[in-house]
């Protein structure tokens, strides 16, 4: 399949998934009703459901999926490791500790978000400072520092869960498994996605060169150290933005870039937009299923990303 054809198909898939997300729910709506509600026409209950509940949620889900997929693409190029995902460098671990600590102290939604942001930023600075010390760019040390910090955060998360009251645990587990029911900062997330996505597409040649190895990149004219630092912080920004939207949603960042590569597309000028479209559509679909399948019970979206993604990817892997 050519990249252009896949791009068109994924664009259609994105529109379809957004449409499905807007029409599905405890109040099923016809596409025409959704269209009118988006324009502010029709009965007020429908307008409120579409404009206040479903639209922000599908936009949040799409942005979150796109952010995670793009972070995965950038980190796999930076670390030259196919197992790299947005959480490998400890960002989600720091965010989880921050969020759960705030929940344990009985903080509200805003304070929890703020605390998770603080935890993520602390992790970003700590990993960069320890991993890239003295200006020496050792990618393995960076990776190991991130993995060690993640392990430490994992232990702290277990401790916080143990210390939490029984009624607090459910909220904590939802945050840990990923939940898009209270998206905050959707506009900011879209701006980050568009800005970083555009930059990544424009500078995609550098990403290709970097994926070929550090010495190779240097002899082909890439300022390797500067690129590594920029990529690290860009990926961290994408991950933090995604965490703020939907907590820690696994699978998307790791597997979306590989799903595109399984179509034989590896150059970043295509990989970047295609992974963003696939990640966004995929998360909208997963979130729609998570909130409708056992309605009115809403399940954590992170469970569905894995349940949907694993069989599809195993099938794709089996084909090639």
């Amino acid at each position: 399949m050519t990249p252009r054809l896949l791009f068109i198909l994924l664009l259609l898939a994105a529109m379809l998934s957004l449409g499905l997300g807007l029409t599905s729910g405890s109040l099923p709506l016809a596409p025409g009703e959704v269209g009118r509600a988006l324009l502010g026409q029709g009965d007020s209950a429908t307008v409120e459901v579409v404009q206040q509940l479903r639209l922000p949620r599908v936009l949040a889900a799409f942005a979150c999926g796109g952010l995670l997929a793009l972070a995965g693409v950038l980190l796999q190029a930076l670390l030259r490791n196919p197992l790299a995902d947005p959480y490998i460098l400890g960002v989600s671990g720091g965010a989880a500790v921050g969020a759960l600590a705030a929940m344990l102290l009985g903080a509200g939604l805003a304070a929890t978000q703020f605390s998770s942001l603080g935890g993520a930023l602390l992790a970003i600075v700590a990993v960069f400072g320890l991993g890239f010390r003295r200006g020496e760019r050792n990618i393995y040390r960076l990776l190991l520092t991130g993995v060690v910090l993640s392990a430490g955060c994992g232990a702290l998360v277990s401790l916080l869960l143990t210390l939490a009251q029984f009624e607090q645990v459910k909220g904590m587990l939802f945050w840990l498994m990923g939940d898009l029911s209270h998206p905050e900062g959707v506009l900011f997330a879209w701006l980050v996605l568009l800005a970083v996505g555009l930059c990544a597409a424009i500078f995609s040649g550098g990403l290709d060169v970097l994926a070929g190895g550090l010495d190779k990149a240097a002899v082909l004219g890439l300022a390797v150290g500067r690129w590594q630092a920029v990529l690290y912080f860009a990926a961290a920004l994408l991950t933090v933005s995604a965490l703020q939207l939907g907590g820690s949603i696994g699978f998307v960042g790791l597997m979306m870039p590989h799903a595109i590569r399984l179509f034989g597309i590896s150059v970043h000028r295509w990989l970047v937009p295609l992974a963003v479209l696939l990640g966004g559509s995929f998360l909208v679909l997963a979130d729609t299923l998570a909130r409708t399948l056992w309605s009115p019970l809403q399940l954590p979206v992170g469970v569905f990303t894995a349940l949907l993604g694993v069989p599809v990817l195993l099938w794709l892997l089996g084909r090639r």
């Binding site: 030259r80 196919p82 290709d208 060169v209 970097l210 994926a211 070929g212 190895g213 550090l214 010495d215 190779k216 990149a217 082909l220 590569r261 034989g264 590896s266 150059v267």
Partner: peptide, 16 residues
Amino acid sequence: EDGEFWGSVLDYVLLG
């Protein structure tokens, strides 16, 4: 070379 290039042969040569 310390990297693993995932693209096609043409993509790889284009890096030159």
